[in-house]
Write a protein that binds this DNA or RNA. Structure first.
Length: 389
RNA sequence: GGGGGGAUGUCCGAGUGGUUAAAGGAGACGGGCUGUAAACCCGUUGGCUAUGCCUACGCAGGUUCGAAUCCUGCUCCCCCCA
């Protein structure tokens, strides 16, 4: 069996911080399985590649005999998101949270070993009495909380911060108390919250957790962190073709990081950027969908994006069967979820093709016979086959 | 409790009575080009039964031939003082 020192070195391998220095090794030296915590927010139930970076690290802990404690933040979600002034984000119902939590687990298990996971919901302990809340909130000061980078920035920018939001880090910290976390993982943006967990644990007379932060994966724009709300994410459950295409859209400059953080190896130096990116896309798809799906996705990309050909399987859109001329903007709007005005604009831009032939701006009404059985294409990637219903 | 500032399209952000469906930027989309859904260049970017009509600058009224721009009330946000 590996020594605690070797384990600690391995487990903190590509972490940004492993705090405090030496603490991980000390915990490992005790020889018992550690309780390694990760908190998940059940409001946006999709695990994306950014999460995968952290999940992989958790997996490494599992593979060395430790236990992952996955915390579903159902209670904090039920409180509703207080951020933003006109935020009308609906509070999630119990059913939604259950569904999201299930999706989350399912997707997290594409990386984690389900046999070594304990899933807990923080409603188990956060539904506490006022008295207990007082005890918790006494353990930190406003100045401490305001130190957190994003609060500081928002405060400086004069954007609203609700008291509830200030409370969030404390609630998260209390999770660590409740489950006796030995280690807590997160992205570097979580560093403050994770460290606060230590303070609160100490205040409750518990051993303090080790804080391990992982680098943030840049999104498909290559600049900002991958996040669903920024729309630059790739979900682990996304279809192979999407995953493949999106991966190819990342800027070349982001490739070394993606190789490093997702595949755990340096970008191959013997491949050109194009081949390296295709290889990356293929391996990522293979990981979540299998080798066959990855090969299909690569073939689809070659066919549709590079050869500009029609995909093999395209959805059928039913036309009304009354024989009247068909109003094209309406069909385009219905088939692809656009507005009719937008459909008209696209027609004007030569983006709409019927069986490969571009249509003009004036071709608004087309005889039904001409459309029946034809392939309608909008832009490079949206296709459907028309058929009279 | 007192004083000051603010609310504009997906987002950021100009605009203080008259081509303002609203500058500029970001994002997104389309076209060109390409090794790519990258970069770069060009274009588009409220809706509709479409040479016109409707909706839109926090909400509700008002002044005016005409308002995002002026007035009144309301709601919400930020800052300073107490």
């Amino acid at each position: 069996m590996a020594s605690a020192s070797e384990d600690a070195t391995f487990l903190s391998r590509n972490a940004v911080d492993c705090l405090p220095a030496g603490a991980l090794q000390d915990k490992l030296a005790a020889g018992r399985p550690l309780r390694v915590k990760l908190g998940l927010d059940p409001t946006a139930p999709d695990i994306h590649l950014g999460h995968v970076v952290v999940l992989q690290k958790l997996r490494e802990f599992q593979d060395r005999g430790h236990l992952v404690v996955l915390i579903v933040g159902d209670y904090t979600a039920r409180v509703g998101d207080p951020s933003g002034r006109s935020s009308t984000r609906p509070q999630l119902s119990g059913d939604d949270i259950d569904a999201n939590a299930r999706t989350y687990q399912e997707q997290a298990f594409t990386v984690l070993d389900p046999a070594r996971v304990e899933v807990r919901r923080n409603s188990e302990w956060l539904d506490m009495s006022m008295e207990e809340l007082f005890r918790l909130t006494r353990t930190a000061t406003v100045a401490q909380i305001l130190e957190r980078d994003d609060f500081a920035k928002r405060y400086a920018a004069q954007t609203p911060i609700s008291v509830l939001e200030l409370l969030y880090p404390m609630l998260q910290a209390y999770d660590s108390v409740a489950i006796d976390a030995d280690v807590e993982l997160g992205g570097t943006d979580q560093k403050f919250n994770l460290l606060l967990g230590r303070d609160v644990q100490r205040a409750y007379g518990k051993p303090e957790q080790v804080v391990l932060t992982m680098p943030i994966l840049p999104g498909v724009d290559g600049e900002r962190k991958m996040s669903k709300s920024l729309g630059n994410h790739i979900g682990v459950a996304e279809p192979p073709q999407e995953m493949y295409g999106k991966t190819l859209s990342i800027p070349d400059a982001a490739m070394p990081q993606w190789y490093d953080l997702l595949l755990g190896e340096p970008m191959p130096s013997d491949l050109g950027p194009r081949d390296a990116k295709h290889a990356l896309a293929r391996r990522l798809v293979a990981r979540f969908h299998g080798d066959a799906a990855a090969a299909d996705a690569a073939a689809h990309f070659e066919r549709v994006v590079i050869q500009k050909d029609v995909p093999e399987d395209i959805p059928v859109h039913a036309l009304a069967s009354n024989g009247a001329p068909v109003h094209l903007p309406a069909v385009i709007a219905d088939a692809f979820g656009l507005s009719r005005s937008e459909a008209r604009r696209l027609l004007g831009q030569g983006a709409v093709k019927l069986d490969g032939t571009p249509l003009g701006a004036g071709e608004l009404d087309v005889p039904a016979e001409r459309l029946d059985g034809a392939v309608l294409q909008v832009g490079k990637r949206r296709f459907c086959k028309l058929a009279r219903g």
